[in-house]
Structures are given as structure tokens and as C-alpha cells.
Design a protein around this nucleic acid. Sequence first.
DNA 1: CGCCAGGCTTCTA
DNA 2: TAGAAGCATGGC
Length: 280
Amino acid sequence: MDYIKVEQLGNDTVISGLADFDLDDILDCGQCFRWEKLETGAWRGLVRGCCRTVKQEKDTLVFCDVGMDEFNAIWYDYFDFGRDYGKVREILSKDDTMRRALEFTPGMRVLRQEPWEALCSFILSQNNNIKRIRGLVARLCENFGEPVPGGFAFPSPECIASLSEDELLPVRCGFRAGYVLDAARKVSSGAVDFSAIDKLPLQEAGLELQKIRGVGPKVAACALLYGFDRVESVPVDVWIDRALKEFYPDGMPAQIAGIAGIGQQYLFHYIRNRDAAVKK
DNA sequence: CGCCAGGCTTCTA
DNA sequence: TAGAAGCATGGC
């Protein structure tokens, strides 16, 4: 357990006694694309059709206008509170590089997002920058998602499968439009079966996702890590590739294999931000 | 304006 | 089968 207490206070659900949890790092590290930071420092995001505001002050996390039922149904899993990050840190710390990455961003966590949203988002992420990915995902939702209080839900595979490439033009996702359509068709038809993927070994699960045009090893690994709760999945993008060459020329240590994807998240943030941090 | 972006597909040797 | 070019778009 990485917190001491969860309770409902008025209309809010409040977590207190948080350890190693930094909302800014978690929501702004390129693993999710539907959160925006408000002037107040709070974050507003849309998850599973629920638009909510979350704010952190030191070791307290407040889910505004969220009751315990909703917290248990959505947010407990989304922030992966069922996982003992103390244990995660203990395992990763046995490796010197991981220990440095942990010390650099102690409050990082890997979110558990919806499988389809994660897959679709990371298809859009290819050869793209994080700022623009947010824009593409936002336009996809605004144009085709179900309206919900505060915004638009992420459009279903069935919804997107019914569209043409021309209809996707307003999203301005360029060559990725065909990829998104192929993904939506294969997922909605069952040609790519999420419940089957859940049961497959990692390697085969990745190959299953790669039946989709525009899904290669990296996008598949991202979908598995962020959308299918496969914390052993390690997406290797240009940054992680550099990190692997620098720190692990012979591969990542076997002792962290079971949670290497979480380690990857610390490493990703570390390799991207360490130089900027030194300049401060 | 030119370079590049949490890659992948296609072409070429 | 490895390596490079091409891909839409826009942030910087």
C-alpha cells in the first residue's frame, strides 16, 4: 500500500499519506494524452467517460466530485493503487542505473489505461511529438467521441470502423489515418481479440497486435504496457534505445524482467530530462 | 525556414 | 535481410 488512508470528504475522495507519488510526473511523462494542467495546478482529465479534476498537495491527493464508488470502480485501478510500488522500487533499486532513475523521479507510476485508447493513442504517436499527439487525440475525441459532461469520451472501435479516411481528415493525423481505421476494423470485428491477447505470452500478444497496419514492435509494446497491464513489456523508442546502448549494452538485468516496463518508465523520464535538470 | 518528432511500411541493394 | 527513403503534419 502506497498510502495511509482513503476517505470521502464532502463530494471528494481524498487519499492521504501518499508515498512516492507525483501527479505532475505521472500525467506529463508521455504515457497518457488526455490530461491538461489547469492554472490552479490541478489536473483535468477524461477517463472511461468521466471528466474529473485531480489535485495533489504534498502527500494528499484529492479527486474532486468523486465518490468512493467511482473511486473504487475507476481511479483505484487507473492509478494502479493495487500495486505495491515500495516493492517495485525495492526490486528496481538492485540495479544501479534503475536506482539512479528512481532517485531522479521517485513519484513516477505507470497508469493502467483502457486497451483500445492506449492502442489507438500510440498508433497516433508514431513519428510525432508529444504535444501534437495530445492535439490529435483531442480532435479524434471531439469529432467522434460520445459527448459526456465536461468533454468527449474516447470513440469506440466500432464508431471509428464506420468512418472513411476522408471523414478522419479533421483529425489531421496524416498517414496515420489508415492505421487507425485498420485498427478499429480489426478490433471491432474480433480479428484482433483483446481478451485473447490478455491470455497470451508477451511475445505472442505483441505479434497479435502487429497484425494491424501501422503497429510495429514499439507501438505494440506501448499498448501492452499502458493498456493491457503488462508491466513486463518494454517499449523501445529512440530514447530507450539510447539508454539501452549507454547503460545496458548486454541487455536489461534479468532480475527486473517481471516489471521491466515500469523500469522503462523511470528510465524514459531520466534519459529525456537529466541534462535539462543539470542546467537548472 | 529547416529540422525533427515515444515508428512503420516500402523500396533498394 | 539490412539499411535507407518516404510518409502528413506542425512544434520549435
